[in-house]
Design a protein around this nucleic acid. Structure first.
Length: 652
RNA sequence: GCGCCUGUAGCUCAGAAGGAUAGAGCAAGGGGUUCCUAACCCCUGUGCCGCAGGUUCGAGUCCUGCCAGGCGCACCA
């Protein structure tokens, strides 16, 4: 509700300025004053107008406030030195509109399809905290888009034929000498087993670099379907993908489709893309120089820089990673002219199905994936260069608009703080000790596994729940603890801006106090108890009283008087910014904006809870008003938590 | 060498598209529960906003230079 209203106010001022001063201006920028005494909105245009009109800003501000007359949604307008114009909202009308707005049902999905690709973990080891950041950002972004009524498809790309899987296959076959049957008999958690094996293989290679030959052989066997390595690779990657899906399901993250490298290969996506690239001159065969014999793409030169070229096809005829990625990106945009078949891979607890790509038609109805109007790739910042190359590939085929709609949702990595390394018993080199953080490395087995972190969070929250909820069953307490663990984790991953490196620290990640997920959950649980107690104590309470007050507010000026209380108004105004803030989050891909806003609302609601004792309020109408304030704030906060993927338990 | 990012309180981080007195959380110290859950609330202190110039009525925010740190720039994925 915020943006339309503010737009109307700005437009009102724009018209006034044009009529009154006979000038042409765009709607003036509006901001929120630093303190509530200074109003709810503020203009600074008098400072700019001062130059044009050659008059002091404060004089202009005073003149405008005197002459503007009634402004929609605004109760009064004041000029403040040295030239601000402060607007005070009509609190009563704003509040009632907010109550109604929060009762609207969410928009139905429609319009052009948006594809969001996230998670993309190599299927050769357990997921770690870095992957959690990716998945949480991606999933939260998806929730934001859906809340805006966008039609969203969630993809999780699986590189099941790459070196990382090959390395684990080498580990099983050559290092361990295990057969497929023996590997299949390894008990869960299989992804943990592979985590260790992967690190072991990496070390084994280093002892004798000649062993890298085995990796190449494995890659070749996997690509050409030669057993036993091919079946081993399929077993490893399928089983680990399943483990990843289950890990992510623990934090309420689901996927629609898993496009796999193996099908991209077998359906010859690259060959088709290569044909297009050659036909349209996007890649050229280098006849001379160091790249002789390679097909290269030229990147537009940065100003004053020499032209850059990127090798797409090696001189031995094999395609590079970027090349394959361009083919895949073209498919996502519906520009390849080829597509996959699909079969169900995993059914979630809520019956939602994650499909996986296939080369053969499915015996039943196949969904239609890909062909997105807009594509977001959630990948960490280290891939920025390659993502630029991919977009350039699309662009050089002549798809300018599609390249612009190929968006890299980049974010910084999760690293390990020195304290965290100590806690994990990791010995650091002298070089690493000097750093403020150490990069997570699957190859070195350096990292915190996602499931381990979730398990610790669960245990910690269970301890807290057990302290407080003695009368609940063990199952109920566990369910609450799970909910809290998810809230803590997701908020932790979202509270930082995306280009801030998270130096992972157990103390911070496991905190349930202050700016944390559990604080947000607790705020709702506690305020919700007011309504529960009310229902227990007051037989006449049905909740209808709230609707009654919205539909028929007191006819005298009581509502006005109640809302004159800045402590209450501050809370309600903050809640009313919901759509503006989340819109900002989507526009800037900065989801921490939503997270922090939710925290602000929670802080204000806690303050209100603390300062006003609602159930013992004796004046009945005022009590209903207080209840409506709590209800409104709670609805707003719940919407925000939905966007963050944080559920709220009944008690905690 | 080139490109991108970061530098704000003891620590971890926010700082609306330049605006009014630079904020949160944690940590430290003190206080609050016969009451709707103390996973809460209140009080207390700390800032050459990396440094130096510039643009502007106004700069933590924009520009230039420098310093420090991180990441990227393969016929690896």
């Amino acid at each position: 509700m915020w943006e339309e209203r503010v737009a109307a106010i700005r437009e009102h001022f724009r018209r006034f300025l044009e009529d009154f001063y006979r000038i042409t201006v765009s709607p003036p920028a509006v901001e929120i004053p630093p303190r509530l005494e200074l109003g709810d909105l503020a203009f600074t245009f008098p400072f700019e107008l001062a130059k044009v009109l050659r008059r002091p800003p404060h004089q202009i501000a005073r003149e405008v406030t005197e002459k503007i007359g009634p402004v929609p949604f605004i109760e009064r307008v004041e000029a403040a030195p040295p030239g601000f114009i402060n607007l005070y909202l009509d609190r009563g009308g704003w509040f009632l509109d907010l109550c109604l707005w929060l009762r609207q049902s969410p928009p139905k999905p429609g319009g052009p399809k948006v594809i969001v690709e996230h998670t993309n973990i190599n299927p050769n080891k357990a997921a770690h905290i870095g992957h959690l950041r990716n998945a949480v950002l991606g999933d939260t972004f998806v929730r934001h888009l859906r809340a805006l009524g966008r039609r969203v498809e969630v993809q999780n790309y699986i590189d099941n034929t790459g070196v990382q899987v090959a390395d684990v296959v080498v580990g099983f076959h050559h290092l361990r000498g295990m057969t497929l049957e023996q590997v299949a008999a390894i008990p869960e958690p299989f992804d943990y087993y592979c985590w260790d094996l992967y690190a072991e293989v990496s070390e084994w290679y280093e002892e004798d670099p000649g062993r890298h030959q085995l990796r190449l052989q494995a890659l070749e066997a996997i690509e050409h379907g030669r057993d036993p390595l091919f079946s081993l690779a399929a077993h490893v990657s399928d089983r680990i993908v399943l483990a990843h899906l289950k890990t992510m399901e623990r934090i309420d993250i689901r996927y629609d489709v898993l496009p796999r490298e193996s099908e991209i290969l077998h359906l010859r996506f690259w060959e088709e893309a290569f044909r297009l690239l050659r036909e349209r001159g996007a890649v050229t065969l280098a006849e001379e120089g160091p790249n002789k014999g390679c097909w290269v793409m030229t990147l537009p030169p940065a100003e004053g820089q020499p032209e850059e070229t990127k090798i797409i096809v090696r001189s031995n005829g094999t395609v590079t990673y970027v090349g394959k990625d361009i083919a895949y990106q073209l498919w996502k945009l519906g520009l390849l002219g080829k597509t996959f078949h699909y079969r169900p891979f995993y059914t979630y607890a809520d019956r939602h199905v994650a499909w996986v790509t296939s080369t053969k038609p499915f015996d039943g109805e196949e969904p239609d994936f890909g062909n997105g109007h807009e594509v977001y790739n959630v990948i960490d910042v280290r891939q920025s260069y390659l993502q630029r190359v991919v977009a350039q590939g699309v662009r050089s085929l002549g798809y300018e608009a599609e390249a612009d709609r190929s968006i890299h949702f980049s974010y910084e990595m999760v690293a390990l703080s020195p304290r965290c390394c100590q806690a994990l018993g990791i010995e650091l080199s002298e070089e690493d000790q000097r750093r403020s953080y150490v990069e997570v490395s699957g190859r070195r087995g350096l990292g915190v596994k996602a499931d381990d972190l979730l398990n610790i969070l669960f245990e910690r929250s269970l301890q807290e729940v057990e302290k407080r909820q003695r009368d609940l069953t063990s199952e109920q307490r566990k369910s609450i603890a799970r909910c809290i663990a998810v809230g803590a984790l997701r908020y932790f991953m979202l509270k930082y801006t995306r280009n801030s490196v998270i130096a992972f620290d157990f103390d911070e990640a496991l905190s349930f106090e202050g700016e944390t997920g559990p604080y947000l959950q607790y705020t709702i649980v506690r305020s919700n108890n007011i309504f529960r107690k009310l229902a227990e104590r007051d037989a006449g309470w049905s909740g209808k009283q709230l609707e009654e007050m919205i539909g028929h507010p007191p006819e005298d000026d009581r509502l006005r008087r109640w809302l004159a209380d800045d402590k209450i108004w501050a809370l309600l105004r903050e809640v009313s910014r919901l759509s503006e803030v989340t819109g900002q989050s989507v526009a800037t891909l900065e989801l921490s904006t939503t997270a922090r806003h939710a925290f602000n609302v929670a802080q204000q609601l806690n303050l209100f809870y603390h300062n006003y004792h609602i159930l013992s309020e004796e004046e009945p109408e005022r009590r209903v008003f207080y209840l409506l304030v709590v209800d409104t704030a709670q609805r707003g906060l719940r919407k925000l938590l939905d966007l963050l993927g944080i559920d709220v338990p009944e008690r905690m």
